[in-house]
Write a protein that binds this DNA or RNA. Sequence first.
DNA 1: GTTTTATTTAGGGAAATTCCCTATTTTCTA
DNA 2: TAGAAAATAGGGAATTTCCCTAAATAAAAC
Lengths: 216, 216
Amino acid sequence: MSIRIVLADDHTILRQSLVKSFKEEKDIEIVGEAKDGRHTAELVKQLQPDLVIMDIQMPDLNGLEATRRIVKEFPQIKVIGLSMHSNDKYIREMFRAGASGYMLKNCSFEELVKAVRTIMKGKIFIGASIGDLVISKYINIPEKEGSAFSVLSEREREILQLLAEGRTTKIIARLLHISPKTVEGHRLKMMDKLNIDSIANLTKYAIQEGMTTPEP
Amino acid sequence: MSIRIVLADDHTILRQSLVKSFKEEKDIEIVGEAKDGRHTAELVKQLQPDLVIMDIQMPDLNGLEATRRIVKEFPQIKVIGLSMHSNDKYIREMFRAGASGYMLKNCSFEELVKAVRTIMKGKIFIGASIGDLVISKYINIPEKEGSAFSVLSEREREILQLLAEGRTTKIIARLLHISPKTVEGHRLKMMDKLNIDSIANLTKYAIQEGMTTPEP
DNA sequence: GTTTTATTTAGGGAAATTCCCTATTTTCTA
DNA sequence: TAGAAAATAGGGAATTTCCCTAAATAAAAC
């Protein structure tokens, strides 16, 4: 029985090339693809794969948030974080979110396959370029007080990302199937919690927390 | 006759320590201090110093913009850019703006003094840690089309920075002594030019262009 | 040297959004 | 299981946005 994988990355070209590469691995099967966190979570619910290869920067709902949700609901499903950045924050947050592995996008395909197999044996895998030892250290660093994950609720973080991506209140409401009034309420609550009083600064906060990229 | 300097940096501690250090240099005199670009430009107009030591990241009106204005109006006044970042963009833009030198904040005081003296002799000075040769190369790289400086007008850039710092239209209007309607008009024009349709994405654009920092 | 284009200024006015209030249900947690 | 935190959302005044027009400079092109 082969390893069933869902692939989540907003870059279509990367997804395509990975699918092609994985075709050669007879014991691994890509059963689904998604280009944002929200669709990934839905797809995972439907398909119940063994593992998710998860890009961190994705529109709409980022990989960190998607991982938290998936792992919370289906703890047996493994997640490998895949990112361009060797940023401390991303790595730490990704493992905190429940990922079992973290790879940089500049790793080789062979390394990724090795990661998949290692993780399916119940182990943790960290891309060579990051360095295996750092992780145990990182995980034990106490959460910086005031970080988005500790101060904001799941819903708030979700809405913050969408706001920071330039979505209007109305659009967000439609997307999440709630009233614009609710979205508004969440934003006001966040601004109050964070002591921020403009969308501009809310956007900067989201960038700092790795919830969105500075690319408009 | 000593070299008269205006010191512009939003970090008071840094300013104070520099003032103290410069006291020991008998041929150099700090004649004025400012903590943002707008006040720097005003002060320079009043005091007509020989040289301005200019931090790049400053609230309200950043160092790049302030340099452009000062050099445009008083071409004989020299400007040294001072920044934490060895970022390509900042260096290039600072020289384009008309600066005669660029130093990193982690340089020694002796190096800064040397920079001041070198520049007063009509030469260009680049901090050792950046590397003298890069500059001539940098300056000749063609301006990336679509960069803030080429697409946006001076007034637009000024307003963009203030917006990206979380200021409201009303506050900006009061600050610049123009009508809120005018500020609004400029913003709409910019959004149209840049094909951006939210404050969030406008903020990201400003960050990318080095007009503001991601710190809220 | 004059036409043209870009910039800066700003008002009118409908539509949309924000801000602050309250309030209910649900979900954690001590 | 009582109490706190989170998620939901409506009311309504105040504010802001968005799109229109338009005039006075300033700069560039011809």
